[in-house]
């Protein structure tokens, strides 16, 4: 269905670009999540207000619109020109980071108040309590929702094809334009995304088990191929924090 030349010149590099965009924007989103999520628990109202404003604005933003804005409006508006991939990574990282900040904030808020008190009784500073007690305990709680968010982010990377980043979706569109035979190429694309999502989920499961072991907990093994790529927590869905959408 695709010539060898096309495969090596466009499709394989496209897969690699998708991987790169996923890794970079996930790293940015993770950093933003922890920064904004932690600031949103600050006792100072001004800090809470500023970080809360970031959250509200970026959560209300459509990642795709943001991407177009970064790629085409920002250069003429502010005179900053991004390479297309940077615009894509920034748009994805900043918006998904806003969703992630809610995960971090929620997990920090769920740490038992008694743990904070024990930290005070041992005379830790606020920063030490956060770093040594609150964040490590909140971390295992964050992993399942982070997994959901990571899959959303992976799916979001397809958007960079619309601002001329040559990821695998872009390569797929090219092939359609060249050959007109679109069924196999889009099917293949969907399958690759699905496999990536599956692999990421497996990786996050490992991370979750490791994190729980470090808390001295051994969670029950989840089995079965289709036993939920996502962690289907009932409470998540009901409170709407699940996909952190």
């Amino acid at each position: 269905m695709m010539s060898e030349k096309f495969f090596t010149e466009w499709f394989l590099p496209g897969i690699w670009i998708t991987v790169q965009v996923t890794v970079y924007s996930a790293a940015l989103a993770l950093a933003v999540s922890f920064l904004i999520g932690t600031l949103r628990t600050s006792p100072l109202w001004i800090v809470r207000f500023a970080s809360g404003t970031y959250f509200e604005i970026f959560r209300g933003t459509s990642a795709l619109v943001m991407m177009f804005w970064m790629a085409y409006a920002v250069p003429s508006l502010l005179g900053i020109q991004f390479v297309p991939m940077a615009a894509g990574v920034l748009a994805l990282g900043l918006t998904y980071g806003a969703y992630g900040s809610e995960i971090v904030r929620g997990a920090l808020a769920a740490v038992a108040p008694a743990q904070r008190e024990a930290g005070i009784a041992l005379n830790f500073t606020k920063a030490q309590r956060l770093r040594k007690i609150e964040l490590p305990q909140a971390w295992p709680e964050m992993i399942p929702p982070f997994n959901n968010l990571l899959i959303e982010l992976l799916k979001g990377t397809a958007l960079v094809s619309t601002i001329a980043v040559a990821d695998m979706t872009f390569a797929g569109n090219l092939l359609r334009l060249a050959k007109g035979d679109s069924a196999p190429i889009y099917t293949l694309l969907l399958v690759i995304y699905f496999v990536f999502a599956f692999l990421l989920t497996r990786g996050m499961r490992l991370l979750e088990r490791q994190a729980n072991r470090r808390m001295g907990k051994t969670p029950p093994e989840k089995t079965g191929f289709l036993s939920g790529l996502r962690s289907k927590s009932a409470t998540d869905a009901v409170t709407g924090t699940g996909g952190a959408k």
Binding site: K155, S182, Y193
Partner: peptide
């Protein structure tokens, strides 16, 4: 469907 990009699904629906 849930674990693959909506954008590619739209291409699929529109072109395939």
């Amino acid at each position: 469907i849930r674990n693959t990009p909506l954008l590619v699904q739209l291409f699929f629906l529109f072109y395939v």
